[in-house]
């Protein structure tokens, strides 16, 4: 594997995968701690109808319109879940199941009925993304990383994800105190006068932002896996939130890079000639990491003292 081959073909997808994984893992830490892990699952399902609707309205595969559509769909789903829960007083997990499956079915129907299937938009793409196709055509080798002309032709997904990740990190730093307080002791946070409901909604919106940007590049399988697996594995490594977040970033990076390499080169090593789905492999690796920490992690059991 030399630079002339690796840099244009493998480096951008690996970087995009890592950025997407970290962007999802960061809010995932708080979702896991708040026992809201499945909100991530719900969000990544409702992204589909949002994207299809945006396509139907604009009649073009415009990335920003799709981000907006998906974000709107995620907000709609979260508000619906909350309204139905309040009015009907039924368990929130079941309500979530009702809302996200309905919206996903709506997305499938719209997709099949519209001309969207004639362009590059289909359910399989929505699930698995197209990580492998995000290549950097202008690159000639490692030297291209310093060449501004070549850098300009990097896949736009890369810069979009990088921007999203920076935004998420900045938000995390700004709202660190209220967010952690309300995560660990909502009653105490409320008594301090913190707007706990707004914080909770804000967290969900940040998760939606991560899901929507990542979804475009890597598909919803990775999004769900990255919301939950790295954060859950990190939770089994440490008691401290700060180090848990660092662990989760490490696990996310490891899953994305190892998963991509295994999917692209693994089959060749065992003598098959075709690569396998990178998105699926990344999700699998993150699950394996969680399995390892569940057996060996130093803090795998609840603290008992």
């Amino acid at each position: 594997m030399n630079g002339a081959e690796f840099v244009p073909l493998s480096l951008p997808p690996i970087l995009i995968g890592i950025l997407a994984a970290i962007a999802c893992a960061l809010p995932g830490n708080f979702l896991v701690l708040r026992k809201q892990a499945l909100i991530g699952d719900a969000i990544s399902h409702v992204v589909l109808p949002g994207i299809v609707l945006a396509f139907l309205v604009t009649q073009a595969l415009d990335a920003w319109a799709m981000l907006l559509g998906a974000g709107a769909a995620a907000l709609f789903a979260v508000v619906m879940i909350d309204v139905i829960k309040r009015v009907s007083r039924i368990e929130v997990g079941a309500i979530m199941g009702v809302v996200f499956t309905t919206l996903f079915a709506l997305g499938v129907l719209l997709l099949e009925q519209s001309s969207a299937s004639s362009v590059h938009l289909d359910v399989e793409h929505a699930l698995m993304g197209n990580l492998e196709s995000l290549i950097w055509l202008e690159a000639r080798g490692w030297a291209s990383l310093l060449d501004p002309v070549a850098l300009a032709s990097l896949p736009t997904e890369l810069s979009r994800l990088a921007l999203t990740l920076v935004l998420i990190v900045v938000l995390l730093i700004i709202f660190w105190r209220p967010l952690t307080l309300s995560t660990f002791d909502e009653g105490y946070a409320e008594s301090l006068g913190l707007p706990v409901r707004a914080i909770s909604l804000g967290l969900v919106m940040v998760a939606a932002l991560a899901a929507v940007t990542a979804f475009d590049a890597v598909g919803s399988i990775i999004v769900i896996a990255m919301f939950i697996c790295p954060a859950a594995a990190a939770r089994l490594m440490t008691d401290r939130l700060r180090s848990q977040i660092w662990w989760s970033v490490g696990f996310a990076t490891l899953s994305a890079s190892l998963g991509y390499v295994l999917a692209g080169y693994g089959p060749l090593w065992i003598g098959l000639d075709n690569s396998v789905s990178a998105a699926g492999m990344i999700a699998t690796v993150s699950g394996l990491i969680l399995a390892l920490t569940a057996v060996l992690g130093p803090k795998r059991c609840a603290t008992t003292t």
């Binding site: 896991v32 892990a37 699930l127 939950i228 859950a232 699926g280 993150s286």
Partner: peptide, 27 residues
């Protein structure tokens, strides 16, 4: 056996098993 709650366990199993399935599908 771990301190994770049920929702995290469900989400983790759901996504990693499905991911494995997708890998096998491409095979």
């Amino acid at each position: 056996q771990t301190r994770l709650s049920e929702d995290a366990a469900i989400g983790a199993v759901l996504s990693s098993f499905f991911g494995l399935g997708v890998v096998m599908l491409t095979v």
